[in-house]
């Protein structure tokens, strides 16, 4: 019989409760139980970074955390980055303007990682941006558009 637990957590500001199988990753839980399919699972062993979400404001791999471990925590997914009225987060807007995505698979992890990074480092150098996304693999863009977007968004966010 499957080992399950009841959990309560906050996802994108909303309180959620569910019964989860304990071996379910946070990423699978967000997609399958909550229908938040913005979070993408790529490699499922912590290398590609696509599944990155924020847990209590810190960027983590949702494939390397169990859903049961998110009990009582505050989770933000890519769906939670934009404003409630649908206007884009400055990073999302900058990705759009700077051609920061092609196929879009890596994008949710890029956005959540960079959101956490810019929170701590609002005025990064290009090198720092490249290091920040060194754990996020993009096979389309060659990263240039992503780096440009991150620097552009940082500027917008600094100027408020």
């Amino acid at each position: 019989m499957a080992d399950t637990r009841d959990i309560e957590l906050t996802v994108n500001g909303e309180s959620r409760s569910a019964t989860v199988e304990t071996r379910t990753s946070l990423g699978d839980f967000l997609r399958q139980a909550l229908g938040l399919t913005g979070t993408h699972l790529g490699c499922e062993h912590g290398v590609c970074g696509a599944c990155t979400v924020l847990v209590d404001g810190e960027a983590v791999r949702s494939c390397l955390m169990l859903a049961v471990q998110a009990k009582g925590r505050e989770v933000t997914t890519v769906e939670g980055l934009s404003n409630p009225d649908g206007t884009l987060h400055p990073l999302q807007d900058a990705f759009w303007r700077n051609h920061g995505l092609q196929c879009g698979f890596c994008t949710p992890g890029m956005l959540t990682s960079l959101a956490a990074f810019l929170e701590e480092n609002p005025d990064p150098s290009e090198r720092e941006v490249r290091e920040a996304i060194s754990g996020n693999i993009c096979r389309c863009t060659g990263y240039q558009g992503i780096v440009d977007a991150a620097l552009d968004a940082a500027k917008t966010m600094r100027e408020g």
């Binding site: 960027a59 983590v60 990074f117 920040a132 754990g135």
Partner: peptide, 9 residues
């Protein structure tokens, strides 16, 4: 050590 996302955990 890894990346900042993995160092968080």
């Amino acid at each position: 050590v890894g990346h900042f996302q993995t160092r968080n955990r």
